[in-house]
Design a protein around this nucleic acid. Sequence first.
DNA 1: CTCTCAAAAGTCAAT
DNA 2: CTTTTGAGAG
Length: 774
Amino acid sequence: MTELDLSFGAPNDPLTALTEGLNPQQAEAVLYRGPALLIVAGAGSGKTRVLTHRIAGLIRTREAWPSQVLAITFTNKAAAEMRERAEGLLGQATEGMWISTFHSSCVRILRREAENFGFTKNFTIYDSHDSRTLLKRIYKETEAEHVGLSVAGIANKMSRLKNELADVDSYAHNANLNDPAERKFIEVFREYTRSLQAANAFDFDDLLAQTVFLFRAFPGVADHYRKKFRHILVDEYQDTNHAQYALIHELTRETEDGTPGASLTVVGDSDQSIYAFRGADIRNIAEFERDFSGAKVVLLEQNYRSTQNILSAANAVIGNNFDRKAKNLWSASGDGDKIMAFAGPGAHDEAQFVVDQIDALHAQGMAYKDMAVFYRTNAQTRALEEVFIRSAVPYRLVGGTKFYERAEIKDVMAYLISVANPADSLATRRILNVPKRGIGPATEATLQSFATQNGISVREGMRSAAQLGFGPKVTGAMAGLSDLLDEATTLMAAGPVADILALILEKTGYVDALRATRDPQDEARAENVEELLAVTREFDKNNPDGTLIDFLTEAALVAAADELDDESGTVSLMTLHTAKGLEYDAVFITGVEEELLPHRMSAMEPGGPAEERRLFYVGITRARKRLFMSLAMSRALFGQTNISAPSRFLREIPDELIEWLQDPSSYSGGFGNSLSSSGSPRAVSGSWNQRSDGWNSLPPAAREKRDWDNRVTNQIRDNGDLVLAPGDRIRHVDFGEGLVTEITGVDSKRVAHVKFDQVGAKKLLIKIAPIEKI
DNA sequence: CTCTCAAAAGTCAAT
DNA sequence: CTTTTGAGAG
């Protein structure tokens, strides 16, 4: 979408200029003034544009100062984009505006107000991983397994309760205390809450819930923010949970002394609600008009992103969800290409299809960065990655095992957290013996119980190491660590974050310790730590006044989509959830199979299948020009190969919108049956052969391509320094014989471009391809 | 206390 | 099937 160059030449009416180039509904959403506005924005309908223009209007007409605007987005990336676009309209006038995610806004408020309720402003934020570690410890101490509770079960339940704004006491009040499992759960919940407080830490759910509790407990504090924020705008409103909903309500309430509530604008699309598992409640948007009486509703249906074929498919799919308001996306940009679909025998064939199509698009001039591959589960990345690597297509995994979740990064971050928040004993305990300095579990336990008995943190306890009767080696090691943390603490007051980290790395020798081991993966880990150092330098550069706390906050709240680098020049691979809010010229939705999309777990959940359909809908509507769908007729899961059936969602797309390169019914022969004897009762052949139309009337060319015997495997081979030159003939394990046409790249990155006799042109990374020269 | 090997868990999505 | 966690030996 292109941003129009709006000129503000009409001083008497700054709003007119802001609506130029907008359609009537968009203009109405920009211009409407009133206490509550709901913008129902279909996918690609230009909602970011409407929001930024609405904000610009408020500022330019002097209805609001920038500091009176609070705009809440779903990811930091979306926030950054919104700020950038608002700056494009307003220039420096965006300074002082709060444009951030729910979690970031809450952190900002909590840091400022923490002293009011027993925390300090340098509190730590526990991600799901950290809170799971803490919970596991408590789980063991309380022997919760004896009453049949699981760690995951407790974690989910606590999270759900917090999202519903219940705390231990309110829950215990209504619980059935005759049930030993309930009593144990309450005990764990209470201890978990106590530990977080002692560690001066919040988990993700607390950030929201505690802010609401803060507002309710301290009306004066709440009034301060109610008076400050006169215009509140919330994006992706369909994915808000109860705590977020309550937060918005608290902020838009009339103050004690009669200042009227702030104006509220929410933007959302109930068809894109995909976070019910995280507590998102679709009723928040469905019942908005009831919650805020007199609310204005504006519907945006014109799509500026996708071709009509893509939209028609999206509309057809989502139309199968009952209990929704009808909405019909349309585009003025023409039909475009058909959706291309492919059913491969296995996951690697599917991946090869994706890579082949990417190669073709790239050859036609589409940049890698404009293409994305989506999948339902992270486990699907393996086959995709293997094929991407050996075909030398540059790619990037977005999300998945995130940088900040790697053990070595967590180790180093634990040092920084111990410096910033000495009360955080979870962090301090993590670094006691990292790198190895002879402080083992026994020492750790002694130290922890000493700290607990004296009501101090582990960090404080280390100062008394001499009295604890440890051996000279252990005492010395502990004193050394304690001194290092003290030294880093002095540096924290003035020094940039990179200096603190550099000091820690130098004094601990952490990187050297990694490099000294025999584990070949440790070299990569050492590089990751050095990458973190580079990240802190970048942070210092971008935030001259940034503190260590600021850095830790930013690190704790990065979302998967935030990692996206638009200039990376690589294909992006991500889950369908991560894809929300993004758009690409070409989109591949992979694993469009029953049990995977919709996922098997969704069948048990109320509203599950409908949410899966919305997820598929979100995926479809990310595509601008080209959309591809693929599936594998058999897929290895849990180390077992299962026969898969094409997703029901595929059948919801009208036949005339899809062109099958190889369709599922071409597998209806003996092969499918022979495998399915051990597999699912939902035989592949049955459901697809029952169709009388479409699937069997494919052109002969497509049907002849059934290569069950020529499956793509995941074989690789170390070819050493095999030298190939244009003109050579080779034999490939999967693709047969072919002619080398070109060699690109150097050393281990050399790539052979091969024209295979049977399967056409492919690119191969020479070092690992299963090939031989003939 | 540290290393090695075997058992167990995980794989539905994420701030 | 892979990765992480635990037990026992050294």
